[in-house]
Each structure stands twice: as C-alpha cells, then as structure tokens.
C-alpha cells in the first residue's frame, strides 16, 4: 500500500469504520435542500395555511344576520353576498378603483422608467432609491400627508381656487378619486422599479442595431423597446393590482365610512359586529379575486417568456 492509499484508507475508515450512508436522492444536495426548506414550509403551514384554512372553513358557517340554525354548514354567506346590492357595489367599487390605479400607475411610471433608463446616471444612482421612500416610509404616513393635502380647506383646494379651476372648496376627501390618487402615488415606485429593470434588460446594442438600420426614434421605440419591455409592464401591472386590492389604509381614511372597499369591509365586519363568518366569506372572495388576476397575469407572462 502506498502512502497516499494509506491516507485515503484512514480518511474512509475514520467514521468508526462504519460505511457512510448512501444518500437516498441521486444528487448531492437534494436531501439538503429539503432540510433547508423544512422549517419554512412547516412554519408557513402552521401560521399561514392553517389560519387561511380555518378562514375558509368559517366562511361556510352562517353569519348571525342570516339567522340559520345552529350547526349550519353551507354556502349561505356566499349566496347572501351575491344577492345583496351593498356587497355587490363594494366588490365592483374595489375592482373599479384597482383598474384606475393600474392604468394611471402604468401611464405615469413608464415614461419615468424610460427617462431613468435613457439617462443612465439617474437609474444607477440614488434617484430611484429616493423615489421609493414612500414604500419604505409606509402607507400610514403617506396617507396622513394626503389627508392634510386634500382636506376641505387644505392646500390642494387653495391651489385649485387660486388657479381658478373652482370657486369654492370642493370635497376631494371621502371620494374614490382620493383613494385612487393616493394609491397611484403609493404604487408608482414599485411599477417604476419593475419597468426600469425590464428596460435595462433591453440591450443597448439592439437599440443601436435598430438605429444603424435607419429606424427613427419613434419607430425604434415602437418596434424594439416597447415590445421588449412589455413583460416588465405586465409584471408592474400585477404588482400594482395586488397592492391596490390589498390596500387598507388609503381606503379607510380617504374613502371615509361611505366608500367601503373589500378590505375596509372586512375590518368593519369584524370590529363593528364581530361577525367572523361574514368577514371570512368576504376575505375568501377578496383572495379569489386577487389570486385569479395575479395568477392569470403571471401565466400570461410565463407564456410570453416561453415564446421568446
């Protein structure tokens, strides 16, 4: 036995002569991956899946307002919601607000991201970080700012009167418009980041190639940049939508008690009447809307990516 053989032999026999266990999985590490994921999966199962499961279960218990017999388990709450005008109105209002927010946010964020991309120093520096302060500061402070700005005797009203657009203070607070304005402002940085990242991946030499082929700036934009950045726009729309439909603070304060959306309806139902069953039902409907749209848009994205 040579020297290096001896060394190897001692290396092998070190674990008390016992033969090492054969890994069940084929690759080095699949077992390790499972071990690394286990705590998170267990944690989320206990504190996310289980609570949501209980919510789903509770949504099939009858709300007290329905005066069902004890031990009822069925779709009564869903039937009630779908047959009651107030609930339908709230669902439609929620979706309408989200639609407006997505449209305006994309309209405002695309040019902004485009400018960041065009003037590369802006995109790489602190400009984007500063733009994203509101999303770090949190919606509460931002909404406080809008409450101050949009109040009946507040600065925005003074400016409107000074500009001669209106002669007497108008009520902006407690309107859907106020909610939409605040949500556009809140979601804008997220959308700008997404579109900027997508635009950054449109390689410069593609644009230069188009230019060398004689394409005018407008045609370069229309035929090269816009199509290539479309996935970024779509994912920005997904994020904007899910932020808007989940938003609570803006509708709670800027919509007042009269312009309820689904999130504020949930809090009213719990804090106002402690009706867990009905609140669960609304929550399930909210989840279905939000996840359907997100999953649909995501699968459109994946299909788009697969085609390329």
């Amino acid at each position: 036995m040579t020297e290096s053989t001896a060394k190897l032999a001692s290396a092998i026999s070190k674990p008390s002569g016992r033969r090492w266990r054969r890994r069940r999985s084929g690759t080095w590490g699949t077992g390790q991956a499972r071990l690394l994921l286990l705590p998170a999966l267990a944690f989320l199962t206990l504190f996310l899946v289980l609570p949501l499961g209980i919510t789903l279960y509770n949504s099939f218990l009858a709300s007290p307002v329905l005066a069902k017999p004890d031990g009822y388990f069925g779709a009564a709450n869903y039937v009630y919601i779908s047959g009651t005008g107030i609930y339908i109105d709230i669902i439609i209002r929620t979706l309408r607000i989200c639609a407006f927010v997505v449209i305006f946010t994309i309209l405002f964020s695309y040019p902004t991201a485009f400018i960041f991309r065009r003037y590369a120093r802006l995109g790489s520096g602190s400009a984007i970080l500063i733009l994203s302060f509101p999303m770090l500061a949190g919606p509460l402070v931002v909404v406080l700012g809008w409450m101050i700005l949009l109040a009946d005797g507040g600065p925005v009203n003074s400016w409107l009167m000074w500009l001669g657009i209106t002669s007497s203070p108008i009520e902006i607070l407690r309107s859907e418009a106020a909610i939409i304005i605040a949500l556009v402002q809140f979601t804008l940085p997220f959308a700008v980041l997404n579109i900027f990242n997508a635009l950054s991946q449109v390689e410069h030499h593609l644009i230069e190639a188009a230019r060398s082929l004689g394409a005018s700036p407008l045609r370069r934009f229309w035929h090269v940049i816009l199509p290539l950045s479309l996935p970024g726009v779509l994912s920005a729309a997904v994020i904007t939508f899910s932020l808007a439909i989940s938003s609570f603070i803006a509708p709670a304060y800027l919509g007042g008690g009269t312009k309820l959306v689904m999130t504020t309806l949930i809090s009213e139902t719990i804090l106002g009447s402690y009706d867990l069953a009905m609140a669960s039902t609304i929550a399930v409907v909210l989840l279905v809307f939000s996840l359907t749209v997100v999953i649909a848009m995501n699968s459109a994205l994946t299909r788009h990516a697969a085609r390329r």
């Binding site: 053989t5 060394k7 674990p15 090492w20 890994r23 080095w28």
Partner: peptide, 27 residues
Amino acid sequence: AGFETPTSGEIWLGGHEVSTLPAHKRN
C-alpha cells in the same frame, strides 16, 4: 471530487470505492 453522486457506475480511488463518500472526507 464528491460533489455529485453517480447515477450508476463506480469510482475507485486507491482500491476503495468512493462513489458516495462525502466530498469533505475524500482528501
């Protein structure tokens, strides 16, 4: 080196079969 385990076959080093010996014990 021991970073991947063969799907089939054997690796012998100095007269020892090492196919499934972890990398940090192979020297």
